Simulated assay, not measured.
Amino acid sequence: MDYNCVECGACCATFRVDFHPSDGEAQGGRVPEGLYDELNGSIARMRGTDHTPPRCRALRGCIGEQVSCLIYDERPDPCREFEAGSDACVRARRRHGLAESA
């Protein structure tokens, strides 16, 4: 099955995204300031991902139609490691009423 992330974006509007603050621009990392909050010395979180419903502030577009990440090249490790077609991906797609396969 082929999962087209550029049409989907469900993961960006389903899961909280936590990462180490050293991955943030304020500490010399790649994630731009203004798009995350440093919660403590060991956790930073992408803004919008802890809202109800969650939606990452870096996500643009309409879920299931056409989306893009404003910081794709600078996105944090959890986003880089997320696998299209994984169980988590399928759960996110279901939550947004999308087919389990693209």
Rank of each mutant, 00 (worst) to 15 (best):
M1T: 09
D2A: 09
N4E: 04
V6M: 02
V6N: 01
C8G: 15
C8H: 00
C8L: 02
A10M: 12
C11G: 15
C11Y: 05
C12N: 14
A13Y: 00
A13L: 12
R16H: 11
V17T: 14
F19E: 09
F19Q: 05
F19I: 08
F19A: 03
F19L: 01
H20E: 05
P21Y: 07
S22W: 09
S22E: 15
D23K: 12
D23C: 10
D23P: 08
D23Q: 08
G24Q: 11
G24H: 07
G24M: 13
E25M: 12
E25N: 15
A26P: 04
A26I: 15
A26D: 14
Q27F: 15
G28I: 10
R30K: 12
R30L: 08
V31H: 02
V31W: 00
V31D: 00
P32V: 10
P32F: 15
E33G: 01
E33R: 10
E33A: 11
E33P: 06
G34D: 12
G34Y: 05
G34C: 09
G34E: 06
G34V: 03
G34L: 07
G34K: 04
L35R: 04
Y36C: 06
E38H: 13
E38P: 00
L39N: 13
L39W: 06
G41V: 02
G41K: 10
S42N: 14
S42R: 12
I43L: 14
R47Q: 09
R47N: 14
R47Y: 11
R47C: 03
G48T: 12
G48I: 00
G48K: 07
G48W: 09
T49Y: 04
D50P: 05
T52Y: 02
T52E: 07
T52K: 10
T52W: 01
P53K: 13
P54F: 09
P54A: 06
P54T: 13
P54Y: 02
P54E: 03
R55D: 01
R55C: 03
R55E: 02
C56I: 01
C56F: 00
R57P: 02
R57Y: 15
R57A: 07
A58I: 02
A58L: 03
A58C: 01
A58N: 04
A58R: 08
R60M: 06
R60H: 04
C62W: 04
C62M: 13
C62R: 08
C62Y: 01
I63E: 05
I63F: 08
E65V: 08
V67Y: 15
V67R: 01
S68N: 12
S68F: 12
C69L: 08
L70I: 05
L70S: 14
I71E: 11
I71N: 04
Y72P: 02
Y72V: 06
Y72T: 02
D73T: 09
E74L: 11
E74A: 09
R75Q: 10
P76M: 01
D77A: 00
D77R: 06
P78Q: 04
R80N: 06
E81T: 07
E81D: 14
F82W: 13
A84I: 12
G85Q: 10
G85K: 13
G85N: 00
S86T: 03
A88R: 07
C89Y: 07
R91F: 09
R91G: 05
R91C: 14
A92K: 02
R93S: 09
R94F: 02
R94W: 14
H96K: 01
L98S: 06
L98D: 04
L98T: 08
A99P: 15
A99L: 10
E100D: 15
E100M: 08
E100C: 06
S101T: 13
S101A: 11
